[in-house]
Amino acid sequence: MTIPDVQSSRDKRNMPINRVGVKDLHFPVRIQSADGIQHTTAKLNMAVFLPAELKGTHMSRFVALMEEHDAPLCAAGLRRLTETMLARLDAPAGTIEAAFAFFRKKTAPVSGITSLMDYHVTLACDMDGDTARHSLRVLVPVTSLCPCSKQISQYGAHNQRSHVTVQLDCVEAVEIEEVIDLVEQQASCQLYGLLKRPDEKFVTERAYENPKFVEDMVRDIALSLQSDPRIGRFAVESENFESIHNHSAYARIVSD
């Protein structure tokens, strides 16, 4: 008995579909980091261009591709995976986006105790023919301390945890750790998973000595990104979860 291939049948509406595929596919992956391979779980969006004359794509092939995939994910690896997807689905264009938790071992500034910090990362590759567009998105949690509060207060200054998000269109590969380092260097102070009392004293005083408005952080980060020839278009934003208000402070810069 021959089973009909409905997806490959002809469609008469003369309407191509820019992207069709699977969304929010959760899958275990290996990530290539500066410290070696780490295991995590990715949320994947995978889609291809569908010509007007075809009724549908073969959804199972996206999942089958990930079942077969064994190489660590990085910019070059994601491009190869995208190329394989296009060949498997006989598509001229398509995209793969992988969002995952990225972990980094950090050393406390005084005690030297080590702990893990997690960061939210998204790698993406969008291909059209032989042209590939790579993007990297990293969310980095940091501390910011208000310069105005420090200036006008007799005792202390209010500070808050901030989420800084950097989105890059990469001409050449940029490592995840490089983005994290850049953001943490421009914050009032970086965060740690585990601190002892001497470390708490250090990070509190470090933030106090390095006050930053939300505007300061995005400007300082944008200036560093602007000077990197590996980076094309970029966006940087910061949301400061205010400790003295029931709202956040927010700033965003998008490159020309």
Rank of each mutant, 00 (worst) to 15 (best):
C170S: 06
V110W: 04
S60A: 09
P51N: 10
E83T: 12
I244S: 01
F62V: 01
I3A: 11
D216T: 05
L78E: 10
F213G: 05
N18T: 10
T107G: 10
D169N: 11
D70G: 15
S248M: 02
H58T: 00
Y155N: 12
L145W: 09
N246G: 15
E215Y: 09
G129P: 05
H39N: 08
S248Y: 04
L50W: 04
Q226R: 15
I96N: 14
M117N: 08
A47C: 10
Q154T: 02
S238E: 11
K196E: 07
V236M: 03
L168R: 09
V22I: 14
D70K: 15
T114N: 13
E239H: 13
V218D: 13
E53S: 14
V254A: 04
E209H: 06
Y119W: 00
T57Q: 11
G232T: 12
D220M: 07
A42W: 08
H58G: 11
A235T: 14
D216G: 11
Y119S: 01
L116E: 12
L81R: 02
K150T: 03
V121S: 03
R30T: 14
D126E: 15
H69L: 08
S255F: 09
K105Y: 08
K43R: 13
D35F: 05
A222I: 03
A132E: 11
L182P: 00
F100N: 06
E172G: 08
D35C: 08
H158C: 01
Y192P: 12
T82N: 13
T143R: 01
V171M: 06
V171L: 06
L54S: 13
F100G: 01
Q167G: 04
E172D: 04
V48S: 07
L168G: 08
S243I: 06
L86I: 06
A222M: 06
L89C: 03
Q167P: 07
H26I: 10
C74V: 05
V48M: 03
S33T: 15
R219F: 08
L168N: 00
E83N: 10
A173C: 06
S162T: 15
K201F: 14
Y119Q: 01
P198F: 05
R197F: 04
L182Q: 04
T82H: 07
P28Y: 11
A101N: 15
S144A: 10
M46L: 13
A101S: 15
F49V: 13
R19F: 00
F103P: 00
F234A: 05
E215D: 06
D24L: 04
P141G: 03
V164T: 08
H134S: 02
G156V: 08
A91H: 10
K212D: 05
G21S: 10
A99N: 00
I113K: 01
D199A: 12
G112R: 12
D35Y: 05
A87E: 15
I244C: 00
G129A: 09
R10G: 11
G232N: 04
S9D: 07
C170Y: 01
Q186R: 12
M85Y: 08
E177F: 10
A249Y: 04
E215Q: 03
S149T: 02
I3Q: 07
I31E: 11
R104M: 02
R230C: 06
I244K: 04
E205C: 06
P16G: 00
H69V: 04
Q154C: 11
S248P: 14
G193F: 07
